[in-house]
Design a protein around this nucleic acid. Structure first.
Length: 590
DNA sequence: TGTGACACTTAGAATCTGGATT
DNA sequence: AATCCAGATTCTAAGTGTCACA
């Protein structure tokens, strides 16, 4: 695939070099498309989303019991019952809200009137056999033969080939989520008021298709039709539907390694880099604003101070009772902070304790400057714990102000900026020139970890953590014994070499020396691994790596210190960051 | 000035996979 | 060949931020 100019150059080249033997490589670049404002593509063709298989009724041998008596459920009630039965091992099914929501939807949405009048209490329901059937199915799948597993894999691959790609401006692109979400029970995070509600099966009649006017229109499953066919090239989605639990819109979109997502990613980091050039002015500004006569300006300044210093999220307001009770900066309430004039040797300490995105707890004790502290005291005067801390501020006002300071600047840019600049600083601080690759990786992970801590990216400690830690320790111990052994063998060999003096034992000494060295290297590597693992127990590095750290920092660092890039980024991460890998040399500065 | 629809990024959990270990 | 486990991938919920409209 060549554009015109490239083709013409190639013809000239061949013409003038006909008497030469030449090898040449043609680099084919994506032809620069000129888009009007807001236009995301010129041509888009795809096969539509993949629909999950229809529900298969359970065999007659599997019973559901109500009040101890077997009850044959109608297909729709049975399908929903199975959703619950499959989750029986999960903590969700013990939660009051989950059970209530489930029972309500099960009865109202899926049961016949007769079933509804019979089945009224969840604790009289016995899903035991359905649960056992599900477990047996999982087990059977695990025990499939190699051939059967291969057959399943091939079938899945066929689905990916058919539905997993689209054609966007003459290039085949991978779609990120090409499957319609299957029905099931809604699993919110934290204390979600809607947990357990039925997520309905999506039909083609619910789905809007977006593609080019002149393209091959995706064919809906037999006997069905789409809700709507649309040709909107100002958006990037290929299909969408409205989900019934929260009423939000779900989209089918491209994979992160696509041009569309890559360019957006690049733009994001460029905005963050631009903030670097004016962050000092902005900090000076909000420091001044802390003394403003306007209450709303002072609140804005304090919020900005938190967002900048602590990398808090903006904190849009949310509809009460529709989602779990979580907050960000602008939506903080009085109950979420405690002020300490003195704490652990520091003055003016703010103690934060609140649930953020995904109901992850943010707990931090932070010394702040006096002006901020005094303002906070003022903001909290005569307020109840449940009142808004920043009652004169919302994210729209904050972002409007930020955009006036720098085009494209919003609250979230501070998170990106602070994350990336932290990585760069930490790498500079932690990397030692002479270190080997394993030590380099540990340094990188530590720098990455500093960012993850800043952004409060947590994870539940893996269930197998203690065990695998012990395993690793055991390995280290064995290796230590080996090392002792190898050392004593080396000593022995040296002794022999001295007493005999001929060349053979000398060779032996060299060999033993190498063995000791190997052992030491291996031991060091494992010990570093153990340190890394321990420090990582409750911290998730992935999120910051994928979303907050300018990949060019990592690429430059790898080049500078001779660390293979694949030690830092796996295959799909390298795909996602291909744009950065292409353009970055070791001198890059964020 | 507030509000809801919309489109997009960010997020941790669940599940899968393939290579190391037994 | 079987098993185990860590890392990779998938899944989809939960945020952010803009815009049109009243």
């Amino acid at each position: 695939v060549c554009n015109h100019t490239a083709s013409i150059s190639l013809v000239h080249f061949l013409h003038f070099s006909e008497n030469l033997t030449v090898s040449f490589i043609v680099f084919v670049r994506w032809e620069e498309e000129k888009y009007e404002d807001g236009v995301k593509w010129k041509f888009l063709e795809h096969n539509g989303p993949y629909f999950p298989p229809e529900y298969q009724p359970v065999p007659d041998s599997v019973h559901f019991y109500y009040n101890g008596k077997p009850v044959k459920l109608s297909p729709s009630a049975e399908e929903v019952a199975l959703f619950f039965a499959q989750m029986l091992d999960h903590e969700y099914t013990t939660k009051k809200v989950f059970r209530e929501n489930f029972l309500k939807d099960w009865r109202m949405v899926s049961m016949t009137p007769e079933e509804r009048s019979l089945i009224k209490h969840l604790n009289k329901c016995d899903f035991g056999e359905m649960h056992a059937m599900h477990k047996a199915k999982v087990e059977a799948r695990k025990n499939m033969t190699k051939e059967e597993k291969q057959a399943v894999k091939d079938a899945n691959q066929k689905i990916v080939d058919m539905f997993g790609y689209c054609l966007l401006d003459h290039h085949k692109e991978r779609i990120g989520n090409f499957k319609i979400e299957p029905p099931g029970l809604f699993r919110g995070r934290g204390e979600h008021p809607k947990q357990g509600m039925l997520k309905k099966r999506i039909q083609p009649e619910d789905v809007i298709i977006n593609c080019s006017k002149g393209s091959r229109v995706p064919v809906p499953p037999a006997g069905h039709h789409w809700k709507e066919l649309r040709h909107d090239n100002t958006v990037t989605w290929l299909a969408s539907w409205t989900e019934n639990v929260q009423g939000s819109i779900k989209y089918i979109m491209l994979n992160a390694n696509s041009k569309l997502k890559g360019e957006k990613d690049w733009e994001k980091y460029e905005v963050a880099r631009k903030l670097k050039t004016c962050v000092d002015d902005i900090r000076y500004q909000y420091n001044q604003d802390l003394k403003s006569k306007q209450m709303s300006t002072r609140q804005r300044a304090v919020a900005l101070y938190f967002i900048d210093k602590l990398a808090l999220r903006a904190g849009n307001e949310k509809e009460e009772g529709e989602t779990a009770d979580t907050v960000g900066c602008c939506s903080l309430r009085v109950e979420h902070i405690t002020l300490h004039d003195q704490l652990e040797g520091n003055e003016c300490v703010v103690e934060f304790d609140f649930l953020g995105k995904d109901s992850i707890r943010y707990y931090n004790k932070v010394p702040v400057i006096k002006k901020v502290f005094k303002n906070l005291k003022l903001f909290m005067e005569n307020k109840e714990p449940g009142d808004d801390l920043f009652d004169r501020l919302n994210t729209q006002m904050l972002n409007k102000h930020l955009t006036s300071l720098m085009p494209g600047l919003t609250a979230k840019v501070f998170r990106t900026y602070n994350a990336s600049i932290t990585l760069q600083q930490q790498l500079k601080e932690l990397t030692n020139k002479g270190d080997n690759v394993a030590e380099m990786i540990l340094s990188y992970n530590r720098a990455n970890r500093a960012v993850a801590i800043l952004c409060n990216h947590q994870r539940a400690p893996p269930k197998t953590f203690e065990q695998s830690m012990a395993n690793l320790q055991a390995k280290i111990d064995t290796r230590k014994e080996q090392l002792t052994l190898a050392k004593s063998e080396l000593k022995q060999a040296k002794k022999e070499a001295k007493s005999k003096g001929n060349s053979d034992p000398k060779l032996l000494v060299e060999r033993k020396k190498a063995a000791v060295k190997r052992c030491e290297d291996h031991l060091l590597k494992m010990e570093l691994q153990a340190t890394d693992k321990e420090e990582n127990k409750q911290i998730a590095l992935g999120t910051s790596k994928l979303n907050y750290l300018d990949p060019r920092i990592s690429v430059a660092w790898c080049k500078k210190f001779g660390v293979p890039l694949e030690k830092i980024y796996n295959k799909s991460q390298r795909d996602k960051f291909a744009w950065a890998i292409d353009m970055t040399d070791e001198e890059f500065e964020f």
